[in-house]
Amino acid sequence: MTTQWDTSRAAGIISKYLPLEGPMLPILHALQEEFGFLSDEAIRLVAQTLNVSRAEVYGVVSFYHDFRQEPPGRHVLKICRAEACQSMGSEANAQKLLETLGLDWGDTTPDGRLTVEPVYCLGLCACAPSAMLDDELHARLDAQGLQALAGEVI
């Protein structure tokens, strides 16, 4: 979910984390949580407040897989692609789903409802394959289960 950018609300969020040692990541997480992604305005405001260059904030944002610079779909499905899930056939299941949806990894459905992303291990490796839909964890997901899960939100 994304919310309209609001500079004063963003400034309020940032100020909450300023007393921390090394506040950059907590600030970026909190802004993304609130606004869905890290826009140019967000990056500019963080740079200003922390008194660092925009390039530096941009460098941090682009380094980490979690941070988005584009708004995601209304729901995000993260499918595990790591080894333990692969050993239980996760790749074939994921490919089938992506084909059904006509998407590639990282894409969003044209109606903006669902973004499908890879994740490398959710720590559910004894009950593979696994995935996370928004904040909800799922394990022992066979091909059908995965399709059904995506079906809940599209």
């Binding site: 790591a82 080894e83 333990a84 899930c85 490398y120 291990c121 720590g123 559910l124 490796c125 004894a126």
Partner: peptide, 11 residues
């Protein structure tokens, strides 16, 4: 950070 696939003891 427990990033290794196949591990979940920290978790």
């Amino acid at each position: 950070d427990e990033g290794d696939s196949g591990t979940f003891a920290d978790r």
